[in-house]
């Protein structure tokens, strides 16, 4: 690979190689304060490559591969090279993670205790995590939360926060001093811009937290809250995990331990201000 960088996000190290300079330059810029993989040995490799040599120059399209691949990952145009790199890293986590139970969830921490938010795409877990970071919570991650089967603790994965469409102006207003990547229009997910987690999130990325509250947010409904029983939380979290089956009994122990010990609530919200108020209140009364 012509261009290479490596970085660590939470406990996981990555090496990213690319046929083009631009995606690597974007990663080096936005991830400049992140550490390198532990011991210089990455957990995962990502390749961004041209399917045919001339496609490096003519209508360059970025193919995504790595240690773990899906056969039909659609390529992206070169302007979205950073997105391709992020998707490549996410793909490695989703397909290859075997140390931690991986939950498709955002996580924030306060006083050493973690709040997990999970839901279907568009439920607003990235937006809520970014807004809670703006309010002084430590961001642990906007996409994946990692449960350590040995300890039950949550490890963060504070990659660049991926903000989409209507969420962009809301978060930009809440975090006027934050660092953002380039705006990418017309991605498979619409308009997209990456936000760099704040200095505290990066400095504390390796510190786990004990899970304290699980929320299942849904955006676009009148404000409502209801308690979620452990059995329902278990089913919903297995659906939010890409590696529950692969971990076998360790995954079973980690997840039954989590839902038995940690209260869970579903919250419906019409707007983000309402959601933040609901979250803070539930956190206070847990």
């Amino acid at each position: 690979m012509r261009h290479v960088t490596s970085l660590r996000i939470g406990p996981m190290g990555f090496r990213i190689g690319s046929d083009w300079r631009a995606p690597i330059a974007a990663l080096d810029d936005l991830y400049r304060d992140y550490p390198k993989p532990d011991g210089g040995i990455p957990d995962f490799n990502v390749h961004l490559f041209a399917a045919r040599p001339w496609r490096r120059f003519i209508r360059p399209s970025v193919h995504i591969a790595g240690d773990f691949v899906i056969p039909d990952a659609a390529p992206l145009p070169l302007e979205m090279g950073l997105l391709a790199a992020e998707m490549g890293m996410n793909l490695q986590m989703a397909l290859g993670q075997r140390r931690y139970l991986l939950l498709h969830a955002s996580a924030v921490e306060r006083d050493g205790k973690a709040l997990l938010m999970t839901g279907i795409s568009g439920a607003g877990k990235s937006t809520l995590a970014a807004l809670l970071m703006a309010r002084g919570w430590r961001l642990m991650g906007d996409e994946f939360a990692l449960v350590d089967p040995a300890t039950g603790l949550i490890h963060g994965f504070p990659r660049l926060i991926s903000l989409k469409n209507e969420a962009l102006p809301v978060v930009q207003a809440a975090l006027p001093g934050a660092r953002f990547g380039e705006i990418m229009e017309g991605t498979p997910k619409g308009t997209l811009r990456h936000l760099v987690p704040d200095a505290r999130a990066i400095a504390a990325m390796a510190e786990p937290a004990s899970p304290e509250l699980i929320l299942f947010p849904s955006f676009g409904f009148a404000a409502e809250e209801r308690e979620v029983l452990p059995s329902e939380a278990f089913v919903r979290l297995t659906q939010a995990s890409t590696n529950y089956m692969s971990l076998g009994e360790r995954g079973f122990d980690a997840l039954t331990g989590l839902v038995k010990a940690v209260p869970a609530h579903a919250i419906d919200y019409p707007d983000t201000d309402t959601a933040i108020a609901q979250v803070e209140r539930l956190w206070g009364t847990r």
Binding site: G39, I41, D43, R98, G248, R250
Partner: peptide, 21 residues
């Protein structure tokens, strides 16, 4: 071996064991 390599290989052993089951 380096810690980082040992962790990756421990994951691989666990994964192979689950694959065996």
């Amino acid at each position: 071996m380096p810690q980082a390599a040992a962790r990756i290989l421990a994951d691989a052993r666990a994964s192979a064991e689950q694959g065996r089951v």
